[in-house]
Computed example of a mutant assay.
Amino acid sequence: MPIPWRSSADAFAQILRQRGVEPDAVRDVGAAWEAFGEFLQVEIAGIEGPENDGDGFIVEWGRWDWNDDQPALSFGRQVAVTEPDERDDPH
Rank of each mutant, 00 (worst) to 15 (best):
G62D: 03
A72F: 09
E48F: 09
D55P: 06
L73P: 06
I3L: 10
P4M: 01
W64E: 09
A45P: 09
E83G: 03
D28S: 07
G30P: 14
Q41K: 13
G46E: 00
A72K: 09
W64G: 07
N52K: 12
D85H: 03
W33E: 05
G46N: 05
A32W: 11
W5K: 07
P23L: 11
F36L: 12
D89L: 02
P2L: 07
L73W: 09
P4L: 01
W64P: 08
Q18G: 09
A45D: 15
L40T: 13
Q78E: 01
V21Y: 07
S74N: 08
W5H: 15
W66V: 15
P4G: 01
L16H: 06
I47F: 14
E83D: 08
G30W: 15
D24S: 14
R6E: 12
E60H: 12
W66C: 13
N67R: 11
G20C: 14
V42M: 02
E22V: 13
W66M: 12
R6D: 04
P4T: 01
P84F: 02
V81Y: 02
D85R: 03
W61Y: 07
E60M: 12
G56E: 02
S7K: 10
G54H: 07
A11D: 05
D68H: 10
A45R: 14
P23Q: 13
A80H: 03
I15C: 11
I58T: 03
E38Q: 15
A13E: 12
W66F: 10
V26P: 07
G56F: 03
A72W: 14
R63S: 04
T82V: 13
W61G: 05
I3D: 02
G62H: 05
P84E: 00
D53P: 04
R77W: 01
A25L: 15
G56A: 03
E86W: 01
E43M: 11
E83C: 01
V29F: 08
F39K: 04
W33S: 04
S8C: 11
H91R: 04
F39N: 04
D53I: 02
I58R: 04
Q70K: 13
A11F: 09
R27Q: 11
V79T: 03
R87N: 00
A9K: 12
E22N: 09
A11P: 09
D55R: 13
W61S: 08
G62T: 05
D68Q: 14
R63T: 06
W61N: 08
A32L: 09
I58L: 02
V59M: 02
I47T: 15
D10N: 13
E60W: 11
S8T: 14
A25M: 12
P84N: 00
S74A: 12
G54Y: 05
D53N: 13
D28P: 09
Q18D: 10
F57Y: 06
E83Q: 05
D55V: 03
P23N: 14
H91Y: 00
W5V: 08
A32R: 14
W5S: 06
M1D: 14
D85I: 00
G76P: 00
E48A: 14
G46Q: 02
T82C: 03
P71I: 02
E60L: 11
G37E: 03
V26F: 05
H91M: 00
